[in-house]
C-alpha cells in the first residue's frame, strides 16, 4: 500500500512511516500544495480526478524505477483527488535511501515522472471560468485544440 490515491486529506507522517528502514541515512519528503497564483491568474480551487486503478499502477511503476535506479531506496507516494483549496496538499512523496544525495535525486525523479505518466488531471477554477489543465509539464491549457508555438517554447 505504498502507492495510493486518496479522497481524504493526506496524512504526511503516515507516508513517511512507510519508507522508514534501518539502512536509510536520509528520508526526503516532497509535499505538493495548491498554489493561488499562476502567471498572475488567481486560482479559487482545484478539482483533481484520476483513473484510479491505472494511476496506482503507474505510481507503483515509478516506485520500481526508483528502486532499480537508486540502490537501497524505498518509495511511498499518495496523491489526493477531489476538491482542493489553496494551500491544500495534493501529493506527498517520501523516499528513503542510504545516502542523502540519492534521496533528493530520487524524490525529484518521482514528481517529474508523475507529471508524465500518471493518469491524474486537475481542473482549475478561476473567478472567470474553469478548465481542465493539459500538458505534462504544467498548467498549459490548449483552447485552440493544440499547443501553440508559444506553449512549445516554454
Amino acid at each position: 500500500m505504498n502507492f495510493q490515491i486518496s479522497k481524504e486529506p493526506i496524512d504526511i507522517q503516515s507516508v513517511i512511516d512507510k519508507v522508514v528502514q534501518r539502512n536509510a541515512g536520509a528520508i526526503t519528503t516532497f509535499i505538493g500544495t495548491v498554489r493561488e497564483l499562476t502567471k498572475g491568474k488567481k486560482t479559487l480551487f482545484l478539482i483533481y480526478d484520476a483513473y484510479e486503478a491505472m494511476a496506482v499502477k503507474k505510481l507503483e511503476q515509478i516506485g520500481k524505477e526508483i528502486e532499480e535506479r537508486w540502490e537501497g531506496s524505498q518509495v511511498a507516494i499518495t496523491h489526493r483527488v477531489g476538491r482542493l483549496d489553496i494551500t491544500d496538499i495534493a501529493v506527498v512523496i517520501a523516499v528513503s535511501t542510504p545516502h542523502r544525495a540519492d534521496a533528493y535525486d530520487a524524490n525529484r525523479y518521482a514528481i517529474e515522472r508523475i507529471k508524465e505518466i500518471v493518469p491524474i488531471w486537475k481542473k482549475e477554477h478561476w473567478e472567470d471560468g474553469e478548465e481542465w489543465m493539459g500538458n505534462q509539464l504544467e498548467t498549459v491549457a490548449y483552447p485552440s485544440g493544440k499547443p501553440e508555438e508559444s506553449d512549445l517554447n516554454e
Binding site: 494511476a55 501529493v91 493518469p119 493539459g134 504544467e138
Partner: peptide, 10 residues
Amino acid sequence: IAFIPPVSGG
C-alpha cells in the same frame, strides 16, 4: 479502453 488526455497531476 481508456482515453487519457495529457495528465496534470502533481
